[in-house]
């Protein structure tokens, strides 16, 4: 479904993505894992065409997103849904209008049918009855569920999730995880999840990819990752503070720095 070839993205002198090659398969849940600053959100922005890479290509169903013009890109985007980290609901529209928004913009569906569709999507995320509320009146977990309802209202073939469970309580996390899995199994929606939540990752993933400062250090099925012999992977999935992945960001020697050498 999505094929990434030799993708490079730099911000100033910092290389966020370093010649990445990977695939995201149709009908599977692929979780991109990585610590903060590992380039996983950057990768997501390239996969959706929100940003252009410095070099390399991203193919979506055979179409190269990096060279597609705006019209083509917008055509492809109609097959994509995205759940943003902060939900990105429109603060001037109520919950109903937020979810109905893509339908109103892109289709000529009659009002009563829109109402039916929105009600169905709200039922899927368990939030029927909140139609008249404004986004600011909802909790973070509820906003994410509304965001998910909006992301799937156009029945996309693929949904991108940017840290869907970060900052949520365990129950909300469980609900979101179950929704991702259900959507994938019931509707065969391909899912790409960016996360650093190990537990939730093992619950939902078919395939896992671990990023480390712009490089893919491991990829494979859940079992393969769990049994990986790679010390960096082990450190990451067990959340160990000591290991081959350094915690500090600087190369300077600590002793040198505090002694002004």
């Amino acid at each position: 479904m999505i094929k990434v070839e030799n993708l490079v993205k730099k911000y100033g002198n910092v290389t966020a993505l370093n010649h990445l090659n990977c695939r995201f398969e149709t009908g599977k849940v692929t979780v991109i894992l990585g610590g903060s600053g590992s380039g996983k959100s950057t990768l997501l922005r390239q996969l959706t065409g929100l940003e252009k890479p410095d070099s390399g290509s991203v193919y979506f169903d055979g179409v190269n997103l990096t060279t597609a013009n705006k019209k083509k890109l917008y055509g492809i985007r109609r097959k994509m849904g995205m759940l943003f980290q902060g939900s990105a609901l429109f603060n001037y529209l109520n919950i109903f209008e937020n979810i109905a928004f893509p339908l109103r913009e892109h289709t000529k569906i009659a009002d009563n049918i829109i109402k039916t569709i929105v009600t169905m999507k709200l039922e899927m995320v368990g939030l029927r009855g909140t139609e008249k509320l404004m986004p600011s009146q909802l909790s973070g977990g509820m906003m994410k569920r509304v965001g998910l309802a909006r992301a799937m209202v156009m029945d996309p073939k693929i949904i991108f999730y940017d840290e869907p469970t970060s900052g949520l309580d365990p129950i909300s996390t469980g609900v979101i995880d179950k929704l991702i899995k259900d959507l994938n199994q019931a509707l065969n929606i391909t899912s790409v999840v960016v996360s650093h939540d190990m537990e939730s990752c093992f619950r939902i993933a078919d395939n896992i990819m671990i990023l480390f400062f712009g490089d893919i250090i491991a990829e494979g099925t859940v079992e393969e990752i769990r049994n990986s012999k790679d010390l960096r992977v082990k450190q990451f999935i067990n959340g160990e503070p000591e290991g081959p992945i350094p915690f500090t960001r600087t190369d300077k020697n600590y002793l040198d720095e505090i002694l002004f050498r």
């Binding site: 985007r77 109609r78 429109f90 892109h106």
Partner: peptide, 9 residues
């Protein structure tokens, strides 16, 4: 909200 609009084409 701007990338969200972008993603909705």
């Amino acid at each position: 909200q701007f990338p969200a609009l972008e993603m909705m084409a």
